[in-house]
């Protein structure tokens, strides 16, 4: 029988991850999904789930967060990838089926998927 999820389990998990948290803040990767009304209506939630699924399959330690409307509603779902020391890259019209290639090329191979890029932001901007 599957183990019942409990807060006790979460406390143990905390002890395990607390040690590596400082390093992740400095060197980690964050994927940001726009989740305003426009994003939700264009399928941003489904895109987020596809990204989570792909990260899980590949067992990759990447932060995923959601934000409200970013202001390029016609290009939703918008997905930004932020990596320490690199410009933040915004991708537009990212549907769930595009998640595997995005993760494979950008995160695994370190290659920006130029044809999907809608913007770039330098780290200090």
């Amino acid at each position: 029988m599957a183990q019942i999820k409990s807060l006790e389990e979460l406390r143990r998990l905390r002890e395990r991850v607390e040690r590596d948290i400082t390093t992740r803040r400095d060197t980690g990767t964050t994927i940001i999904v726009g989740m305003g009304t426009c994003g939700i209506a264009s399928g941003a939630r489904e895109t987020m789930r596809a990204i989570l699924e792909e990260l899980r399959t590949r067992d990759m330690d990447v932060n995923v967060t959601t934000v409200g409307c970013i202001g390029m509603c016609n290009k939703e779902p918008l997905v930004d990838i932020e990596q320490a020391g690199k410009p933040r890259v915004s991708y537009g019209n990212i549907t769930p089926d595009m998640a595997p290639r995005l993760i494979e090329e950008h995160l695994v191979n370190g290659q920006v998927v130029e044809e999907w890029v809608v913007g770039r932001l330098q780290e200090d901007e």
Partner: peptide, 22 residues
């Protein structure tokens, strides 16, 4: 309750996120 159990570990931490999903 989740944050009380997690302390400074954010809900968006990959391991926590996986736990939440399950």
């Amino acid at each position: 309750e989740l944050r009380e159990a997690l302390g400074d570990v954010p809900l968006s931490h990959p391991a926590v996120r996986q736990w939440l999903e399950e």
